[in-house]
């Protein structure tokens, strides 16, 4: 699903964000990306949906060559991915239903499919009865669930989450993780950058730790490994 071979990222100001990264992530895996702030987790995540372009190396996502991809193909790469952010990034003037349907609208999905898929993901995240609400009428956890619903409504092969529980209290975070678990159980690969030690320790999934732009640990069933 994701293959990195000697990937480097050097920003224009000369800062080395990622150095000699070698990673293979297979279909259906659940991977935590951990490490201190500024270690390169965000750069790692952003490269996957080509918001950041690697400086050198080989990077393929879902069989697509990220580095040699033309700009015109980027939308089609992103359609095979679901992206979730710490700050939800919902449209405040659209309802829950519209926010999710929006993701299908912009890829010009047929309307019949739209209704079915949106209702389906609303069930998965447990917000069926709030479909008419606007984001500001929802709690943080609920907003993040809408964002997850939007990310998975087009049946992506990989879900990429950057600190999805970063703004949420522990209890709400667990609700979110349960959703991720069930998405993962249906065969979707999940890559999640996080600072949440409790979650990582409890889930016992693969952990990739990045420090100073390098992978310092890659364990199949690891824990968070840092003390706060």
């Amino acid at each position: 699903m994701i293959h990195m071979n000697d990937v480097m990222k050097v920003y224009d100001n000369g800062a080395i964000a990622l150095n000699h990264i070698n990673v293979d992530i297979k279909k259906g895996e659940f991977v935590f990306l951990v490490g201190p702030s500024g270690a390169g987790k965000s750069t790692f995540i952003k490269m996957l949906f080509r918001e950041v372009l690697p400086s050198s190396g080989i990077l393929t996502v879902n069989g697509r060559d990220i580095i040699h991809m033309s700009n015109r193909d980027v939308p089609f790469l992103r359609r095979s991915l679901g992206v979730i952010f710490q700050d939800y990034r919902l449209l405040p003037d659209k309802t829950v239903y519209e926010n999710i349907a929006f993701a299908m609208q912009v890829i010009e999905a047929p309307r019949r499919m739209m209704q079915r898929n949106v209702n389906n993901v609303l069930d998965i995240v447990g917000l069926r009865d709030k479909y008419k609400c606007f984001p500001n009428q929802l709690s943080g956890g609920e907003q993040q669930r809408v964002a997850i619903a939007r990310a998975i409504v087009n049946n992506p092969a990989i879900v990429i989450a950057d600190e999805p529980t970063g703004n949420l209290d522990p209890e709400t975070s667990w609700g979110i993780m349960d959703i991720f678990k069930s998405i993962n159980a249906s065969g979707t690969t999940i890559v999640m950058a996080t600072h949440d030690k409790t979650i990582v320790d409890a889930m016992q999934k693969r952990v990739i730790a990045i420090e100073n732009g390098e992978i310092v640990r890659d364990e199949a069933r690891g824990g968070y490994g840092y003390e706060h």
């Binding site: 939308p75 992103r78 359609r79 990034r89 449209l91 929006f102 993701a103 912009v106 010009e108 087009n154």
Partner: peptide, 17 residues
């Protein structure tokens, strides 16, 4: 611009935007 960014994340083509 936020809406545009979201459109890009979910895979809208430039012309669609």
């Amino acid at each position: 611009r936020k809406e545009i960014a979201i459109m890009k994340y979910v895979g809208a083509t430039d012309w669609f935007i």
